[in-house]
Simulated assay, not measured.
Amino acid sequence: MGEPNIVLTRIDNRLVHGQVGVVWTSSIGANLLLVANDDTAADPLQQELMSATAETSGVGIRFWTLQKTITTISKASARQKIFLVVRNPEDVLTLVKGGVPIKQLNIGNMHFSKGKTEITKKVYMDDTDKAALKEIAAAGVDVFVQDVPEDKKQPLEEVI
């Protein structure tokens, strides 16, 4: 098998919702949404809600654990233009360390929670998040913050 055609990887706490499933998917020309998240892979209700959004966009959607993503993504067809969506930086780091060929990482939405500080209006990070993102960038991934496609990309080194 060849290398999977991952057109973009995005961190979004909400995973697939209107902005991801419609705006981003059409903007980057993806035809498959791949949600790599252990909890969602085991939650039929979350899958049903996200599948409805994908259906609206006319794209396929899969829900895989991180491990299944690592072991299976290399079998993707060249026709599949994959939009990989994950919940947090630590999950992306797991995928990168597992050999998933991520070239670009869009940080889109990381909600506020205790101990996190504001990076942008929609991105909050703690030291663990920052360390994971720096390690991902050090592995050669282009890491940037961008809420919607028409926003200017903010390189990681400019925001943390």
Rank of each mutant, 00 (worst) to 15 (best):
S27Y: 08
V35I: 14
L49Q: 10
T128R: 14
I6F: 09
T65M: 04
G18S: 13
D147W: 05
V7L: 06
V92L: 05
A42L: 10
F83T: 02
A30Y: 04
L93F: 04
Y124G: 02
K97I: 14
R62I: 04
T25F: 09
S51L: 07
G29M: 14
L84M: 06
P149T: 13
D142Q: 12
V20Q: 06
F63L: 02
E118C: 06
H17T: 13
V123I: 15
I82W: 08
G18N: 09
I28C: 01
L45Q: 10
P149F: 14
D129K: 10
K97T: 15
G140A: 14
N88S: 13
D12W: 05
I119S: 02
D43G: 07
L156H: 02
L33K: 05
I136D: 04
M1H: 06
N88I: 11
E48Q: 10
Q146P: 03
L49V: 15
K75H: 12
I102E: 06
Q154G: 02
V143Q: 04
N31A: 14
V20L: 12
V20K: 07
V123S: 02
D126C: 14
N109A: 07
G98E: 11
D129E: 13
V143A: 06
K121H: 08
P44K: 07
E48H: 09
G18T: 09
K81T: 11
K122A: 04
I107K: 00
A36P: 00
W64K: 12
L15H: 00
R79E: 14
Q104V: 04
V85P: 00
G29E: 08
A36T: 03
I73V: 15
H111Y: 10
V7C: 05
M50N: 03
T25E: 11
F63Y: 06
L133A: 02
